[in-house]
């Protein structure tokens, strides 16, 4: 058990986390879902994040969870996110057990929590599948077509562009603190001294990062001006050009059809064999 944890923690380096985050954000791989129209994907995921709340039939919920699991697998969702999801589910369960026992309840109380957990899983898996498959450009174009202001949709894609820069900057500032700092001589019980030391650094490192970033923005703002960004705000030309590229094709309709058929089947089975 200890070994498993050690192996897990060794994978939790800043480098690995960065790569996994970027993979999720940029949707680099050609998967079944990545070729779909982003507008359709957003509507689709909205459907699957709201509908579970109105379903109380366990068979249907389990069926949907399995469907989302398969889609998440096909979208090649990052293992890091899956592990985080599992940790979240397990920890939620454990703490509910403790609360139930502490308040003098019985384990039956737990059974009531299972549907909620499954609902959350369905929602998490479907949004992970969608966001892993959609690169920031598609996402921001889709927002634009829904009538979200241009500044906002640009902000979304610019945020993605800044993400790796910020992570790298944060990492080097933390290293800068460490290169000139001194670790506590004693570990303390449960490493608490080390934990305090690292927590302190990770908070302090935010300020230099923000200030450095603020300095960079000056050039960015000027560049946006001369590259016609505010011009495109005043004219709809750019928006029209961008949205022209968005088209629903045969593949999109197939996807909607197949997932609808499966969902209907699941619901039907659930009606006949409720758990």
């Amino acid at each position: 058990m200890l070994n498993v944890f050690q192996k897990l923690f060794s994978k939790l380096s800043v480098e690995n986390i960065k790569i996994e985050l970027m993979r999720t954000a940029y949707g680099t791989e050609e998967t079944v879902l990545s070729r779909l129209d982003p507008r359709m994907l957003i509507v689709w995921s909205l459907f699957f994040t709201t509908v579970p709340w109105f379903i109380h039939n366990m068979t249907i919920l389990i069926g949907l969870a399995v469907l989302m699991g398969v889609l998440a697998y096909m979208a090649r969702v990052s293992p890091l996110l899956i592990v985080l999801l599992i940790i979240g589910v397990i920890s939620q369960f454990t703490y509910l057990i403790f609360v139930a026992l502490f308040l003098g309840g019985t384990f039956t109380a737990l059974l009531a929590v299972i549907p909620l957990t499954i609902k959350i899983m369905i929602i998490s898996l479907s949004s992970m599948a969608v966001f892993t498959s959609m690169d920031p450009e598609k996402f921001s174009d889709a927002l634009l077509s829904f009538g979200v202001p241009g500044k906002f949709s640009f902000g979304v894609s610019y945020g993605y562009r800044m993400l790796p820069i910020l992570i790298e900057e944060y990492q080097s500032i933390i290293q800068s603190f460490r290169l000139r700092g001194k670790m506590p001589a004693k570990k303390g019980i449960l490493y608490w001294r080390y934990i305090v030391y690292f927590l302190k650094i990770s908070v302090l490192a935010f300020y230099p990062m923000m200030l450095n970033t603020a300095k960079r923005t000056r050039t960015t703002v000027e560049a946006l001006e001369i590259r016609g960004f505010s011009y495109s705000e005043e004219n709809d030309l750019a928006k029209k050009l961008k949205l022209k590229a968005l088209k629903m094709n045969k593949y999109d309709y197939q996807f909607v059809a197949i997932t609808s058929v499966i969902t209907i089947c699941i619901i039907n089975i659930g009606m006949f064999y409720p758990l």
Partner: peptide, 13 residues
């Protein structure tokens, strides 16, 4: 115009 700190003028992914 290409800036000296050209990295900050790149705004797309």
């Amino acid at each position: 115009y290409v800036y000296q700190d050209f990295e900050n003028q790149l705004v797309r992914p």
